[in-house]
């Protein structure tokens, strides 16, 4: 039996909104993630998936419950759980190399070793030519790759990714998907991936956690058949995507009703759902 690695135990979290009401965002979330696995969290917008990631990262405190990594409880941010955010968040005053080396300085690694390591990682994300550039000289996809390199160079136990590709165009996204899968295989890092894109989740992960919304709780955990080495046949991915979408349907319905009024129904407007090419893009 594989050892459970990241343990999420009964996490509750509420925020106070503008009207001073308590809004429950996460409701008793519990799950266990194996070492070296690739887990995606999908759910409609506002379901608290990013909040869950923040709690794991230690950037937010849960109201109750705890999170542990290989037995150790977590209560503050640390370099063992590095986050790649939706926006790259590169420091504009540092070069690409210095950005990647930023975290290494904190690890008390000698300068020469740090530079060597950073260069290796940058080679892995195919950015060796740009190590002395400043972030503003790079394209969006390149910046995101630097951000991934900056996280990986820390050799984290868990790589937390908060919709890292959602601000990128389709081609760049596809390229980075493949690159991320390569990196995952090479480094065997545990990846916790938050996304709203079902197709992305199916393509990348081994396990998909579907969150219900308001309050966010686990609706279902789906295992994606292991076929990572070759491209998965379209029929399989499509079936998976459809399955997840069906699970999510009532949740999406809830969100849309809230936004557009009660008379709106997801069912009656489902012309685009028959077009399988657009599956998963409309959440």
């Amino acid at each position: 039996m594989k050892k459970m690695y990241l343990k999420i135990e009964g996490i509750n979290k509420s925020f106070t909104n503008d009207q001073n009401e308590k809004v429950k965002v996460l409701d008793n979330i519990s799950m266990e993630i194996e070492k070296g696995s690739f887990v995606s969290i999908v759910g409609p917008s506002g379901c608290g998936k990013s909040t869950l990631l923040d709690v794991i990262a230690g950037l937010e405190k849960a109201d109750s419950g705890f999170i542990s990594v290989s037995g150790k409880k977590i209560n503050k941010p640390g370099p063992d759980r590095v986050v790649v955010f939706q926006e790259d968040g590169l420091f504009p005053w540092l070069t690409v190399l210095d950005n990647v080396m930023y975290g290494l300085h904190l690890k008390k690694i000698s300068k020469i070793d740090a530079e060597k390591k950073a260069k290796e990682i940058l080679k892995m994300v195919h950015l060796s030519q740009y190590i002395h550039s400043y972030p503003h000289q790079l394209s969006g996809g390149m910046k995101q790759r630097v951000a991934i390199a900056r996280a990986l160079v820390m050799e984290p136990d868990i790589l937390l990714m908060d919709e890292p590709f959602s601000a990128l165009d389709e081609q760049t996204k596809m390229m980075l998907h493949n690159e991320l899968l390569d990196i995952w295989k090479e480094t065997k890092v545990t990846i916790f991936f938050v996304t709203h894109d079902i197709r992305e989740a199916v393509k990348l992960s081994e396990k998909i956690v579907v969150l219900a919304t308001r309050p966010g709780k686990i609706k279902e955990i789906i295992t994606v058949p292991a076929m990572k080495d070759s491209m998965m046949p379209n029929s399989v991915t499509l079936k998976m995507e459809r399955k997840i979408l069906t699970i999510l349907q009532t949740e999406i319905d809830k969100v849309w009703k809230e936004e557009m009024g009660d008379e709106y129904s997801f069912q009656t407007n489902y012309i685009h759902r028959s077009d399988s090419n657009h599956l998963g893009n409309d959440i």
Partner: peptide, 14 residues
């Protein structure tokens, strides 16, 4: 100072 930079730095251990 953008919140994002602060979050990035904190998760990197600063």
């Amino acid at each position: 100072v953008p919140e994002l930079y602060q979050r990035v730095a904190k998760t990197l251990g600063s």
